[in-house]
Amino acid sequence: MKSTGIVRKVDELGRIVLPIELRRTLNIAVKDSLEIYVDGPQIVLKKYEPDCIFCGNTKDIVQFKGKNICRSCMHELFEQD
């Protein structure tokens, strides 16, 4: 993992500010969702990308009855009849 040399304090509500340079570099816009992971003693933030509930694909995702499904799996489902 690469150190950026940037240090931020957690405020009284538990928030931190991600510097604009990092947000630009990682293409994180206002209101984008981030996933939070714990890896041992580390907290990892990752830009959220919805994936298919069947195959895990993150490309060509559509919502069907509140679930994320890729078009390929959706076609397979409809061909089951």
Rank of each mutant, 00 (worst) to 15 (best):
M1F: 06
R15F: 01
V7L: 13
I36N: 01
K67F: 06
K31W: 11
F78S: 07
G66Q: 02
E21G: 07
F64A: 10
Y48K: 15
V44H: 04
Y48A: 15
S3V: 09
D32N: 10
G66K: 02
K31P: 02
V17N: 09
R71G: 01
Q63H: 05
I20Q: 12
D11W: 00
K59Y: 08
L34Y: 05
D39Q: 08
L34M: 15
R8S: 02
L22Y: 05
K65M: 14
K47F: 07
S72W: 07
T58M: 10
L26H: 14
I16D: 00
H75Y: 10
D39T: 04
N27D: 14
K31Q: 13
E49N: 12
C70D: 08
S3I: 10
Y37I: 04
A29P: 02
F64I: 14
T58E: 12
C55A: 11
I16K: 01
L45W: 04
H75E: 13
L13G: 08
L45N: 03
P41V: 05
K65S: 12
K65Y: 11
T58H: 08
M74N: 05
E79K: 13
P50L: 05
T4V: 06
Y48Q: 11
E49M: 13
Q63D: 05
K9S: 10
E21S: 14
E21P: 02
I53A: 08
R8I: 04
K2I: 09
E35M: 14
I6E: 14
E35W: 04
M74Q: 08
T25N: 12
L18Y: 07
L34C: 06
V62Q: 11
K47Q: 11
T58W: 01
G56A: 01
L26T: 08
V17M: 11
Y48W: 15
L18C: 07
L26E: 14
I69G: 00
G5E: 04
I43P: 00
N27L: 13
N57T: 09
E12N: 02
I61Y: 09
G40M: 03
Q80M: 12
E21A: 11
V38Y: 05
D11S: 00
I61Q: 09
G5H: 05
K2D: 07
K47R: 15
E49K: 15
F78E: 08
I16Y: 00
D11I: 00
D60T: 07
N68Q: 01
L22N: 03
G66N: 02
C73H: 06
E49T: 14
G5K: 06
V17L: 13
L34K: 06
Q63T: 08
R8H: 00
I69E: 01
N68W: 04
I69K: 01
M1D: 08
K65F: 10
R71T: 12
V38K: 13
Y48G: 09
I20Y: 09
V7E: 15
E35D: 15
K59V: 09
V10N: 00
I6L: 13
K59F: 09
Y37R: 07
S3D: 10
N57G: 05
D81P: 09
D51P: 03
V30E: 14
K47S: 06
N57E: 15
D39F: 03
I69D: 01
L77P: 04
E49S: 14
T25D: 13
R23P: 02
H75G: 06
F64R: 12
L18A: 07
G66E: 02
I53G: 04
S3G: 09
L18I: 15
